[in-house]
């Protein structure tokens, strides 16, 4: 649905050149929620704004729904933009218009008839749960309500893509969750492709299907959310993942663990269904070893449970090795933190 190839954006200023995006490529499939995460200054905002040409790329190609965006004439671009909804961190509602008129605004722009506007706006306000606020002004709304208006407005022209520019960053955690739920709901109901940028891993973990991590204008890691979360490769990704789940053993605990005992210390990570398998008791039964559980946690991303367990395997070295081999066969990720003597 969105295909970005070798996108480069260079700002030329008095102080010289700043490379905001450096040959970024990514692909967003139809109907998925794609998240781009990065710290501030990483280039994510420039990236999302290139998709609807609010920023002109210096080089590269952006294809939305089969349409190359970078070569469009102004009037073609306007028509295309009407099909790309966008919501913003600070909502950007028209303060002089009521909620109803704000949602009607994009329809006025695209020349929709009055009667049709009335019908559409009423439905959209229903969809975002603000039917009773139609005649209020934005200044009378809470942040979450304002973003709901923003979402209704972005959906008005039946977009093929929704861009979310830090859409929840100005909201408190509870409101963030409700807005994310609404976005997920819309994604499912309308099969709407959503591209969002954020600096909050929570946003990614709650609703995104795929994620790209951006740093210094480059995509440093990309993939399905569950994969990136459970096996982060880049240190920055790990930092993001750790903001919401502990994949690493805290240093203090790790030191203490490694000092204790004499057995083999193994870390098991598991994703999805095999979480339910009784692997630990199998070890004890079949390999003549004692197992001591040292540390563990379990978490869930969307509907997939995953977790890790650190165990100490006490017994003859040969038996321990066999146990490890067995664990590997179970489709678990195994990391031997300390071998047996």
């Amino acid at each position: 649905m969105i295909q970005i190839r070798d996108l480069t954006k260079i700002y030329r200023g008095a102080a010289g050149e700043v490379v905001a995006l450096d040959s970024v490529s990514l692909r967003v499939r139809k109907g998925e929620i794609y998240g781009i995460i990065g710290f501030s200054g990483a280039g994510k905002s420039t990236l999302i704004r290139c998709v609807n040409m609010l920023e002109r790329p210096t080089e590269g190609s952006i294809i939305v729904n089969g349409q190359e965006m970078t070569t469009l004439y102004e009037s073609q671009l306007r028509t295309m933009r009407q099909k790309i909804g966008m919501i913003f961190q600070h909502f950007n509602l028209l303060s002089s218009r009521t909620v109803f008129e704000n949602v009607a605004f994009p329809l006025e722009i695209s020349g929709v008839a009055k009667a049709e506007i009335n019908k559409k706006v009423t439905n959209l306000l229903e969809l975002v749960g603000l039917a009773d606020k139609a005649q209020s002004y934005p200044s009378q709304l809470s942040g979450g309500q304002k973003q709901r208006v923003g979402i209704a407005r972005a959906l008005a022209n039946d977009p093929i893509v929704l861009l979310c520019d830090e859409a929840t960053s100005a909201l408190d955690p509870a409101t963030t969750s409700s807005i994310l739920e609404l976005l997920k709901d819309i994604n499912r109901k309308l099969d709407l492709t959503i591209l969002m940028i954020t600096h909050e891993m929570k946003v990614i973990s709650e609703i995104c299907d795929s994620v790209a991590v951006i740093e210094g204008g480059k995509i440093i890691e990309e993939g399905l959310v569950i994969d990136v979360f459970t096996q982060p490769k880049h240190s920055t990704t790990r930092r993001f993942v750790q903001t919401i789940i502990n994949t690493d053993v805290p240093d203090k605990i790790r030191e203490r663990l490694l000092e204790k005992g004499q057995g083999q210390i193994i870390r098991l990570s598991f994703i999805g269904d095999n979480t339910a398998e009784p692997v630990v008791s199998s070890l004890v039964k079949h390999f003549d070893v004692d197992v001591n559980i040292l540390y563990g946690n379990i978490d869930q991303i969307q509907d997939t449970p995953f977790g890790m367990l650190i165990i100490e395997c006490i017994g003859a070295k040969a038996n321990c090795d066999k146990a490890v081999a067995y664990l590997r066969k179970q489709g678990l990720r195994i990391e031997v933190l300390r071998s047996a003597e």
């Binding site: 609807n52 609010l54 671009l77 306007r78 028509t79 295309m80 933009r81 009407q82 790309i84 966008m86 913003f88 600070h90 950007n92 509602l93 028209l94 303060s95 605004f105 994009p106 006025e108 722009i109 695209s110 407005r153 022209n157 861009l163």
Partner: peptide
């Protein structure tokens, strides 16, 4: 607020609009 202008641009509004 420039954000509002930008939002309008993103919706495909013309200069006159």
């Amino acid at each position: 607020n420039w954000g509002v202008v930008e939002a309008s641009l993103a919706m495909g509004a013309s200069t006159w609009q």
